[in-house]
């Protein structure tokens, strides 16, 4: 479960101070599917980075379970990311020189899992997203939807508690978007994940249990 208490985030841009998050107080129970919407520059991605332990708030506290993410050192944040949080990005962010199988294996590298087990789990993860026959292909040999499936397999192969998706369907056509959302929703249900999706797309947001709106760094609930 995420607990955010008066979380603010400010950036220095040249002479200007930009407030990306303003006193955000929020709780996200485990296993919930949450959609975050809002205009560009409203603070969606910053909030997702706070939830993903990629950045620390300027003030306030943010906890994931028992871990207080605001004050943990980089090494421990990295460990939490490696074990508990999966990421899916709008641009897929696959390593272009590695095959689908190897891309999925990169998520297991920080866990020190033996090579044989790593290969086995990566194969299973690819099969779970319907790409068992594409394991040896590099990203440029895959369609956008297939690349996003590889990214989802990479996020889930380590069996995290949380899956954070930043515009996961932003680069996909409608049909592929629905396929990816079906996949994410199915995995969410099957695995009991906490799934947080940042999206511009209302069709995607409507599939969430809970919808948050963020503008000017202020988070509000939407019905």
């Amino acid at each position: 479960m995420y607990t955010l208490d008066n979380v603010s985030k400010t950036y220095k841009q040249k002479q200007r101070t930009v407030t990306a998050l303003r006193d955000v107080t929020l709780t996200i129970p485990s296993g919930q599917l949450v959609a975050i919407q809002g205009p560009t520059g409203g603070g969606k991605s910053t909030l997702l980075q706070m939830l993903g332990a990629l950045d620390r708030p300027s003030s306030g506290t943010i906890s994931l379970g028992d871990a207080e993410l605001s004050h943990l050192p980089d090494g421990k944040l990295g460990r939490i990311r490696a074990t508990e949080i999966g990421f899916v990005f709008q641009g897929f962010n696959l390593i272009p020189t590695l095959t689908a199988q190897e891309n999925v294996e990169t998520a297991l590298e920080p866990l020190g899992i033996p090579a044989a087990e790593r290969r086995q789990r990566a194969t299973a993860a690819l099969e779970s997203v319907g790409l068992g026959d594409r394991a040896g292909h590099v990203p440029t040999e895959l369609s956008g939807g297939q690349q996003q499936r590889v990214a989802i397999a990479r996020a889930l192969v380590k069996e995290p508690d949380v899956l954070l998706a930043d515009e996961p369907t932003g680069n996909l056509d409608e049909q592929t978007r629905d396929e990816i959302m079906d996949l994410l929703e199915g995995l969410w249900r099957d695995r009991g994940l906490t799934l947080v999706i940042v999206t511009h797309d209302s069709a995607v947001a409507k599939r969430a249990e809970r919808r948050l709106h963020i503008t000017g760094g202020v988070v509000t609930e939407r019905g």
Partner: peptide
């Protein structure tokens, strides 16, 4: 940059 950012995001250490 994005490649290394992604690797760090999925838990790769600086040393790695």
């Amino acid at each position: 940059t994005r490649e290394f950012g992604t690797l760090k995001a999925i838990g790769w250490s600086n040393r790695r």
